[in-house]
């Protein structure tokens, strides 16, 4: 008796890979939207904009304080009962929305920390030569904050790719959903889930490699 059915696993790979684009699309859309939202939230926190600052803190507190799965169920199954227009929402959109809100809460805090971490004397130097606040942010603070924030933001992106697997609980057939269906047809659960685990693992390793290259480039100015 074979321990593992390798032929089945190899045959499964192309089937699973055909669902990879959807997984990556959800992650990429979620990441892009989360970055924009997180930057906005971080700036509100850094400048302590009255009113908005308190709202932002509440937002971050809620989306960091509750499980992503609960948030997804809330958007997909819960909210449409309250707001009729949301019944149109499909599982993919709900997933992207959930990922965006959930991860933007984490990312806002690391972006805020990166901005605050830029040496205050450089801010003074920029002001002293007559730069406006906008020029100061664009030319001096944000480029340096980016370098500090990239490693953590990449970690969130990796986390987000894996979190797209939760979309299968909203009826979306992505990588995880496809695996579940295949396994249910073949009864080879161990082989199926081991295969999908390896697929996720390889994607993440590829990203981590890209992250290291990006960091090397961003650190160019800081090598002694």
């Amino acid at each position: 008796m074979n321990v593992l059915d390798f032929d089945y696993m190899l045959g499964l790979v192309p089937i699973l890979l055909s669902y990879l684009p959807l997984t990556l699309e959800m992650a990429a859309a979620g990441m892009a939207l989360a970055l924009v939202l997180a930057c906005g939230l971080a700036v509100i926190r850094v400048l302590r904009i009255p009113g908005l600052n308190a709202a932002t803190m509440l937002f971050i507190s809620f989306f960091r304080g509750t499980p992503l799965l609960v948030q997804l169920f809330l958007f997909y199954y819960g909210l449409p009962q309250l707001l009729a227009f949301l019944t149109q929402i499909n599982g993919i959109t709900a997933t992207i929305m959930g990922l965006t809100l959930h991860f933007s809460a984490y990312m806002a805090e690391s972006i805020r920390a990166a901005i605050v971490g830029v040496d205050r004397s450089q801010t003074e130097a920029a002001l002293s030569i007559g730069m406006t606040n906008g020029q100061l942010m664009r030319r001096i603070v944000l480029p340096q904050a980016t370098r500090v924030a990239v490693p953590t933001l990449m970690n969130y992106f990796i986390d987000m790719i894996k979190a797209t697997s939760l979309a299968f609980t909203l009826g979306v057939t992505e990588l995880m959903g496809a695996t579940q269906k295949e396994a249910a047809g073949s009864f080879l659960y161990f082989e199926a889930f081991l295969t999908v685990a390896v697929v996720y693992w390889i994607i993440v390793e590829l990203l981590a490699w890209g992250q290291r290259r990006l960091e090397t480039r961003l650190n160019k100015a800081y090598r002694r």
């Binding site: 003074e124 030569i129 001096i140």
Partner: peptide, 29 residues
Amino acid sequence: RRRTAFVFQNYALFANKTALENIAEGLIV
């Protein structure tokens, strides 16, 4: 600020810019 230039105790150079860019930054921006 445009009529006064400042030299700081701790230099306060822009860490993301080369020596050349540090000097040129104000002229450009």
